[in-house]
Structure formats: structure tokens, C-alpha cells
Nucleic acid binder design. Structure first.
Length: 299
DNA sequence: AAAACTTTCAACCGCGTTCAC
DNA sequence: GGTGAACGCGGTTGAAAGTTT
């Protein structure tokens, strides 16, 4: 990246950054080895002096970033799992763009990675729905559709592994609405084709991830926590009764999706819904919603 | 096959905060 | 308490990889 030094605010220039011999851009394997070997021998210490001592022509900042985001042995790489996606959505609804704080609840994931996930996946979907990522419409879509859907997907993909899914399942059971197949929906094709494609990172186990633990540790009830934060009345809780026999046809779609104002959007026939609601009267929105959901949960 | 377009993510920047003197 | 250096965070960029036309 070309750096225009004339744009620098001279008051904020660090001494190390005044060195025009500083190297920037992608790290080489040799640089990585230098940094890893130095830290293995001496520990992290002060980054600016570490960079010099290790023989790296990099800023301390750059070394720190490279170590924390890439070289650290406990950095977890690969796709964001369903559990992690759910955690990110939950915590972002609570804290906003506090990436570092969110990352603390996703061991092995970096704030940078979570930030990138949010920008490349979630913000993109908001755009495709034609709404702002911070809009009430999009937040409600996440709360009332995607997060229950994610929880159900997690439950279904971990049902063969009870030890892994115990905690999550408990929360799903505590928070999801009735789940029965909904008939007559115009969106069935796109959903049904994708319903079996949920993936779980093979590296994810109850041992190496504390995502599920974090629910307990921090009393994060996926829906109820948001309810506390949100001013809108939420009707999801206490309608607890997951029907595992009937949840397979449309894996996890609530037959009765409750709106922020407390009205049902669908009945069993998928026909009855609240009038004059912001979610309604926009067929494009619904069409986009299902398309977006496919993309959100695929990968 | 290649150009055009899109997506991903490593790395950078600026700024506020913390630390050390 | 003041000051400068270093750290940490969130926003942004752009090269590379992937996909579409």
C-alpha cells in the first residue's frame, strides 16, 4: 500500500514510523520466521523494541498485528461456524462494532476476522435486502428470522452429537417458537434446497470451542438478551415447544413468526399476516430475504 | 481464453487511551 | 500533572483469488 506521508498528522507520528527504512506490505516467510522465533525465545514484550531486536524492518504495530492476527499459535482459521455466526450476531446486537470485545468470546478468532466477516457477509446481505445494516428492519430480520434459524440449524447439525450440542440445544429449547412445517409458502424451493447444506467446521468440538460455554458463562440467552436491550416487545419467549418431529420439512422455520408488534405473520397456511407492517407490502423484500438466507447459511 | 467483475482478508491508517518517565 | 512513546481499536484499503460473462 502506498503511503502518502504528507497526509500524516505530525503530532501523532511515532518515532519508529519516521524511519523511512521501514518495510510495509505483505509479510514474507522469512519475516514470519524471524518474528515467531524471536517471540518463542524472548516473549512478546514491547513491540517497537521487539521489532528492532528481532531484526525486522517493520513497525512495532505491524509486528503486533501480524502476530495477533496470523502467527499466534492459537489463532483459529477456516470458515466461521454456525455457532460462531450466532455468537457474532448476538454480541453485535448488544455491543455494536466492538470487534475486540466480541472476539474475546470467540477463542482463536481475531477482531479483524470478525470485522471482515461482518462486512463481507452480514453487511452485504443487508445491502441485498435493500436496507441499512443498522436499520430496524434489518435488526428485526436478524432477531426474528436468522438467529432462530441459526439456532435451529445448530441444533439439527449437532443432534447426532449430544455432548457438543447440549448447551446450545438447551438455549434453543428455551427460546425458539413453535416449529412446524409451513405449507403453501412461495419460498419453499429455495429453502428446501439448502436445508441440508449446513456445514460445521470439522475442527469444531465442544472441547476446542467455548462458544457454547460462553452462553452459560455470560448468561447469554440468545433471544432474551436482545429482548432486554430492545425496546420492542418480543413474543418469542415462552412459546417454547420445539416439535422435533415436524421441524424437518422446513428445518426450523417457525410456523408463527411473531412481529415486533406482537402479531403473527403466518398461520399454518402461510397466508395470514399482519397488515400495515413494515415487513409487509414489499414482495421484493421477502424474495430477497430467502435468497439472502441461502447465502448467509451456505459456505 | 481472457476480460470484467466480485469477494475476501491481510495490512495499513488515524485516533483515543495507557504507560513510563 | 505534563509530555512523549507505545499500545489497542475500529475503519478503510487494495492486492490476490475466485467467479461470471
Amino acid at each position: 500500500m502506498d503511503v502518502n506521508r504528507e497526509n500524516y498528522d505530525s503530532s501523532s507520528i511515532n518515532r519508529e514510523e519516521e524511519d523511512f527504512d521501514i518495510k510495509r506490505g505483505p509479510w514474507t516467510i522469512d519475516e514470519d520466521l524471524l518474528l515467531v522465533n524471536y517471540i518463542a525465545t524472548h516473549g512478546e514484550g514491547r513491540w517497537s523494541s521487539l521489532a528492532r531486536s528481532a531484526g525486522l524492518k517493520r513497525t512495532g504495530k505491524s509486528c503486533r498485528l501480524r502476530w495477533l492476527n496470523y502467527l499466534r499459535p492459537d489463532v483459529r482459521r477456516g470458515n466461521i461456524t454456525l455457532e460462531e455466526q450466532l455468537t457474532i450476531l448476538q454480541l453485535h446486537s448488544q455491543w455494536g462494532n466492538r470487534w475486540s470485545k466480541i472476539a474475546q468470546h470467540l477463542p482463536g478468532r481475531t477482531d479483524n476476522e470478525i470485522k471482515n466477516y461482518w462486512r463481507t457477509r452480514v453487511q452485504k446481505h443487508a445491502k441485498q435486502l435493500g436496507c441499512e445494516v443498522n436499520s430496524k428492519l434489518f435488526r428485526d430480520t436478524m432477531k426474528y428470522l436468522w438467529m432462530p434459524r441459526l439456532m435451529e440449524r445448530i441444533r439439527s447439525t449437532t443432534s447426532c452429537n449430544t455432548s457438543t450440542s447440549t448447551t446450545i440445544t438447551n438455549h434453543v429449547n428455551d427460546n425458539l417458537v413453535n416449529i412446524t412445517p409451513r405449507q403453501g409458502s412461495h419460498v419453499s424451493s429455495s429453502r428446501s434446497t439448502n436445508s441440508s447444506s449446513a456445514q460445521v467446521d470439522p475442527s469444531y468440538t465442544s472441547e476446542n470451542s467455548s462458544t457454547a460455554v460462553s452462553f452459560d458463562e455470560h448468561q447469554l440467552s440468545p433471544v432474551s438478551d436482545m429482548q432486554e436491550e430492545s425496546a420492542v416487545p418480543l413474543q418469542l419467549e415462552n412459546n417454547v415447544n420445539i416439535n422435533t418431529e415436524t421441524s424437518t420439512a422446513y428445518v426450523g422455520y417457525p410456523d408463527c413468526l411473531t412481529s415486533p408488534t406482537g402479531y403473527s405473520y403466518f398461520n399454518q397456511n402461510g397466508l395470514e399476516f399482519e397488515q400495515n407492517n413494515m415487513w409487509l407490502g414489499n414482495e421484493d423484500f421477502w424474495e430477497n430475504l430467502w435468497n439472502v438466507e441461502n447465502m448467509l447459511f451456505s459456505k
